Computed example of a mutant assay.
Amino acid sequence: GAPMMAIANGATATTFTFGRLYANAHDIDAGRFNALLRMGVSLAWMIGPALTFVLIAEIGFQKTYFLSAALGLVWLASWYFLVPGGFTAPPKTRKDEPAKRMDWALLLAALSCTMFALANVLFTTAAPLFFIKEAGLPGFTPGMALSIKCFVEILVIFAAVRLAERFGARQVLLVAALLGVFAFGLMAQVTTVVEAAAYAALEGLYYGLFAGIAITYVQSFIPEEPGKATAIYMNSLFLGGMIGGVSMGFIADVFNFQMVVYAAGGVGALAFVVLILTKRTGRRVS
Rank of each mutant, 00 (worst) to 15 (best):
Y22N: 10
Y80Q: 04
M39P: 02
L76P: 05
V161H: 01
F16R: 14
F210S: 05
N34P: 00
L174F: 06
T191A: 12
M39Y: 07
V246K: 07
T281D: 09
R32Y: 04
R280C: 05
G136W: 13
A229E: 01
I148C: 05
V74H: 08
L186D: 02
A264N: 03
T125N: 13
G227S: 02
V273M: 06
G19S: 13
G31H: 00
K228S: 15
E134H: 11
K149N: 11
R20F: 00
V267M: 08
G19R: 04
A30P: 09
A119C: 07
Y199P: 01
K228D: 00
D103R: 09
A70M: 09
P223S: 01
N235W: 08
A160G: 14
A188Q: 03
G19I: 14
T12G: 15
F123Q: 14
G204R: 14
N24D: 13
F182H: 02
A201K: 01
V152T: 10
T88A: 09
W79D: 06
W45C: 03
A183I: 11
P90N: 04
S220Y: 00
L108F: 11
V260I: 01
W75R: 07
H26Y: 11
M115W: 11
V190W: 12
A119L: 06
C150Y: 15
V193C: 08
L106G: 05
L155D: 14
A109F: 00
Q189K: 06
F18L: 15
S112K: 10
G265V: 15
V156I: 13
F257H: 05
L173I: 10
I243K: 08
G72M: 06
A57D: 15
S42V: 11
V273F: 13
A201I: 00
T125S: 10
I215R: 02
V190G: 10
S236C: 13
T124F: 06
I215S: 12
V83G: 14
A23L: 13
L21N: 01
P3G: 06
L163W: 04
S236W: 06
